[in-house]
């Protein structure tokens, strides 16, 4: 395992450390996944660059119509944040579903995205919320949509030996917008989901203006239900419409058979139900039904 453990004071110091070690230093936020991956040999590094003491990364703030969630913000911090609850109900719900109290006290929203597990709860919510991420490396700052981060199952396009995600940005909620997160699980704590789905919806004059529907684990990373999203445009959200939206969502899903998380057939059978329920809750949230 690693021989050095450092706490940079700011982001540029972190980037500097990465450069100095030329690929032999790695960013760690909460580390709840990384510590295990270092033990089982998925990763190895000489130096851990712990970013949890960088003050600016520990904040949830408002900036130019966005909610900015720093890379050291934990799941529990997000769940309890009024800003997140008000503007990103799906993220608050998803963050509350991760692991356990002890895990959520350490694990971070951004880490959940960078570890690139297909069914990472908060990442699924962030997909639905059309989040952007700020990536900083020696080359400077870039901002990109969260979709760009997934390179494969458990593989991120972010190389944590070269760069770090400093924050995720979520647009503040507009009138008529709402979101929700729904999870199917085999135990109510300490477990990955069999399926999870997050929805962001925008309703105007009782019609759906736009819906973003994201599902997992049904492919590489969180998957958009594009057919369903197109179908919902300008529809009145009746029971039949939402049912059909659920059915269409399954067309974009390609779950695997898992001896631990359920068969492909079962997951295809219940996915429409989850999507419908998430849509119902998101519409409720848009209408002012709180978190």
């Amino acid at each position: 395992m690693f021989q050095k453990y450092v706490f940079p004071r700011n982001v540029s110091a972190a980037v500097h450390l990465l450069n100095e070690h030329r690929g032999n230093a790695r960013i760690m936020a909460g580390g709840t996944d990384l510590i295990l991956d270092l033990q089982n040999g998925k990763y190895s590094t000489d130096c851990i660059v712990d970013i949890t003491r960088i003050e600016e990364l520990k904040q949830i703030s408002e900036e130019n119509g966005n909610i900015v969630i720093g890379a050291a913000v934990t799941h529990n911090q997000a769940t309890k944040s009024f800003l997140v609850q008000q503007n990103a109900a799906a993220l608050a719900q998803a963050s509350a579903a991760v692991g356990s109290q002890q895990i959520r006290n350490i694990s971070t929203i951004v880490g959940n995205v960078v570890s690139a597990q297909p069914a990472a709860d908060s990442a699924v919510a962030l997909f639905a919320l059309d989040a952007q991420v700020r990536v900083v490396s020696a080359d400077g700052l870039t901002v990109m949509p969260i979709e760009n981060l997934y390179a494969g199952i458990g593989k991120s396009t972010i190389d944590s030996t070269l760069s770090l995600v400093t924050a995720v940005l979520i647009k503040k909620v507009e009138p008529g917008e709402g979101s929700a997160f729904v999870r199917l699980e085999q135990r109510k704590a300490l477990t990955l989901p069999m399926l999870n789905t997050a929805v962001k919806i925008s309703v105007k004059d009782q019609r759906i203006k736009e819906a973003r529907i994201v599902m997992a684990p049904v492919g590489i990373g969180p998957v958009r239900a594009t057919e369903s999203e197109a179908f919902l445009k300008d529809k009145m959200p009746s029971e039949e419409v939402l049912q059909e939206a659920g059915r269409l969502a399954a067309e974009n899903a390609n779950p695997r058979d898992s001896l631990v998380r359920g068969s492909r057939n079962y997951r295809l059978a219940v996915l429409p139900v989850l999507v419908r329920r998430a849509l119902e809750q998101a519409i409720n949230n848009a209408e002012g039904g709180g978190f």
Binding site: R187, K188, A189, L190, T191, L259, V260
Partner: peptide, 27 residues
């Protein structure tokens, strides 16, 4: 919820608390 099943290599598919669903206080 509890079971251990075997995959096609003869390995136990459930070999940790994470995959073996013994009830938590919420269950």
């Amino acid at each position: 919820s509890e079971q251990i099943v075997y995959n096609d290599k003869g390995q136990q598919a459930q070999d940790s608390f994470h995959e073996y669903y013994m009830p938590s206080i919420k269950d």
